[in-house]
Every structure is written in C-alpha cells, then in structure tokens.
Simulated assay, not measured.
Amino acid sequence: MSVTSIISAIAENNLPFDSENIESLASRYGTPLMVLDCDVVRQQFRNLQQALPNVDLHYALKPLPHPAVVSTLLAEGAYFDLATNGEVDLVSSVGVPADRTIQTHPIKRDSDIKHALSYGCNVFVVDNVNELEKFVAYKDDVELLIRVSFPNADVLADLSKKFGCKPEAALEIAKRAFEIGVRIKGLSFHVGSQTKTGDKYATAVRRCIDIMNEVVDFGLPALSTLDIGGGFPVQYTPDVLPISIFCKPIREALAELPETVRVIAEPGRYIVAPAVINIASVMGQSDRNGQTWYYLDDGIYGSFSGLMFDEAKYQTFVLNSSQELFSSVLAGPTCDSIDVVAEQIMLPKLSNGELVVTTMMGAYTCCTATDFNFFKRAEVIAINEAVVFEDIITA
C-alpha cells in the first residue's frame, strides 16, 4: 500500500482495497493518525532533481523534521538545510555526514554557531553586518552565504519580509567580510512559498549574477555558490504548474552562471507535502443551523494547525460511498470555537466512529501541532521506508 495509491483510488472513487488498508491502519494504531509514505518522498525528490539537474538539493527540515524523511533522502543522495540546534541533532542522530549540511538561519546565537560547528557543519548564512561580525571568532572554520531579499507579493508566504538584505547592500557586506577576514562563499535567496511561476527565481538568479560580477569588479574573491532557496509549489489545487514546467525559467537563468558556480536549493514543502495523509475519526455530531457538525479527534490545534497560518489547501475525503451529500462542517475536538477544519463541505451522512481522510498533509502540520486541551497529537507512522516502488505516479 502507498499513500499515492490511496489518493489515486479515492479520486477515482475506487475505494475497496485502500478503504480496507486505511481502516486497518486506524484499527492498529488508533486515530488521529498521520501516515508518512517514504515512496512519495523518494519520488518527489526525484521529480525535483530531474526538473533542476545539476542543482544539489538540500532538504529543509522545517516542514517535516522526521527521521524517516531524513534517512530516505540521505539514501537518495540528498543534502540538508538546517536552521536550529534541534535539526542539527536530528540529522546527526540519523548519520548524515556534516559536509552534506548547511546552517541557513540568518540570525543565530553564538551557542547556535558553536553547536553546528561541533557537529561539523561550517557553512552559514548572514544578511547583515551585525550577524557577520559574530563569525570573527570562527573565521578560520566557516564559510558564509549572504542572503539577498527579493520581495514577492504573489506567494503563500513571502520569506523576504523577515530576512535578507537589499541587493545593493550585498557588496557592502562582502567588503566588510573581507576586511575582518571572514570568507564569503556565495549568495542565497528565497522568493517565498508556493510561488505561481518560476519567473521570480529567474529574476533573482540574474540579479545575483550581477552581484557576483560586482564582487569581482571590486577586487574581492569570486563567489562560488548560489543558493536558490525553496518554495517550489505542490498541487494543493489543480492550477499549480507541473514541476518541470515551473522550473523551466529557472533552468534558463541558471545556464547563464559560470560553470564554476555550484548551485544548491532548499526544498521542503515540495518534498513532503504529498507524502502524508491524516486519518481522523468522528467523535460526535450535532445539527446546527441546517448543517451537520462532525467533531473529529484531530483539528486546528493538532495536525490541521497549518490552516491557521500556512493557508495550505488540504483535500478531505470519507470512505462512505453514499451518493447523497449534505452541507457539513468538520470541527476539531477542543473546546475552542476557532477549532474548525472545514465549513460547508459536502459529505454523506456519517456515523460516529467513521473515518475522515485528508491528503497533502506532510508540510507544516504535525510539526506545528500541540497538545492543547490535553488532546494528544496524532501519531506519525512511516511506511515503505526501505522499499522502492518504481510505478509511483509522478508529479
């Protein structure tokens, strides 16, 4: 069984085999349950690798920091993007070689720098002189990337709002680094999450090429790395471009770089969002204002936490095959009135204990879940950790 086959079967209303497997998982592990399919992680990685050849993909742990994801991607030849001490500890525990990692949080405590260095990670990111000067004490051990800001209003989350220097400031940071003896390795940027086209990346790449030329023209050492960040879109909705088409303008812009420049990227959501399904149970129900409210054992304070801040579009299904549908509400289990997962969703009449399945749940869900109201967060189980199925549907 794979999550991909579950999603495909549900979409085609061909449920018998997958319905039995979902029910079996729920019976064995209980609900709420998050099922992580490592085959989908593999395939997503391969899809992006094919769309961005000659780009070293550093999985960003933030959306799903799970050991099974790390070990699966390590076996695929991935690199890793770390931002916290906890993420350093996770990859270390799985056996990731330190030279396959970078630490990309633009703002760090001295203890964070020491922790990464003690593991062996020596590539860091800065976006201002204050941060740069923290590395004077470690100048013989580190290489830095300067993060450049490219604001993007046409995204789910504009990550340039909080981090990154203006393009015209990058040369000044590079000058200061040279003065204090800290090596600048290259540039980085992040155009934001769920960007609609690859054009924003292409524009940022070309501006970074300009900055690299400015650095050389000033007489500073040439930069050897460009980090194009993450944000590659997943198909929460049907209008999202296939990844190969999305990356076409990125590939064209990267072709303008000197061959001596290594290009890396930081995919997170794209790798894991389609790889997880949520299985929840109906705890109870009530007729309210002409709609049936179904109260699930998972909700906004649990695996659906992304609905509060991530604006992701999850896809919810039931195993009940009845053709008669009614306007319904799916609510979470807590006593808080904002704990509502979906409103005006068309569903058949459900019984207490019936299962509700939600797909595309791998990014910014269980990692931001809480135990609010003492409702235990969903257990995460991994399947297909060591098996590769070649017939997985590709994006």
Rank of each mutant, 00 (worst) to 15 (best):
L156C: 11
L156R: 15
A157T: 07
A157N: 03
A157D: 00
A157C: 02
A157S: 09
D158C: 00
D158F: 00
L159W: 08
L159S: 14
L159K: 15
L159N: 10
S160R: 02
S160H: 03
S160Q: 00
K161P: 00
K161L: 14
K161F: 10
K162G: 01
K162N: 14
F163S: 09
F163V: 06
G164L: 01
G164I: 07
G164K: 03
G164Y: 01
C165T: 12
C165F: 06
C165R: 01
C165M: 06
K166F: 11
K166Q: 14
K166R: 15
P167K: 01
E168F: 12
E168C: 09
E168T: 13
E168H: 13
E168K: 14
E168D: 15
E168R: 11
A169R: 02
A169Y: 06
A169H: 12
A169Q: 14
A170D: 07
A170Q: 09
L171I: 14
L171C: 10
L171M: 10
E172I: 02
I173G: 00
I173K: 01
A174M: 07
K175L: 12
K175N: 11
K175W: 03
R176T: 12
R176F: 09
R176Y: 11
R176I: 07
F178G: 05
E179Q: 14
E179I: 11
E179S: 10
E179L: 12
I180W: 11
I180E: 02
G181Q: 08
V182G: 03
V182F: 11
R183S: 14
R183E: 13
R183P: 00
I184Y: 09
I184H: 06
I184F: 10
K185I: 00
K185D: 02
K185F: 09
K185M: 12
G186K: 04
G186L: 10
G186Q: 08
L187E: 07
L187W: 07
L187F: 08
S188K: 03
S188R: 05
S188H: 05
F189V: 06
F189W: 06
F189Y: 14
F189R: 03
F189P: 09
F189H: 07
H190A: 07
V191W: 02
V191M: 06
V191H: 05
V191A: 01
V191Q: 05
V191F: 04
G192K: 05
G192M: 04
G192S: 07
S193K: 03
S193L: 03
Q194I: 01
T195G: 14
T195A: 15
T195M: 12
T197E: 02
T197L: 06
G198V: 10
G198Q: 11
K200E: 13
K200R: 15
K200C: 05
Y201R: 08
Y201V: 08
A202Y: 08
T203W: 00
A204N: 03
V205G: 09
V205S: 06
V205T: 09
R206F: 04
R206T: 14
R206W: 03
R206E: 15
R207P: 03
R207Y: 05
R207A: 11
R207Q: 15
R207F: 01
R207T: 15
I209S: 11
I209Q: 11
I209F: 03
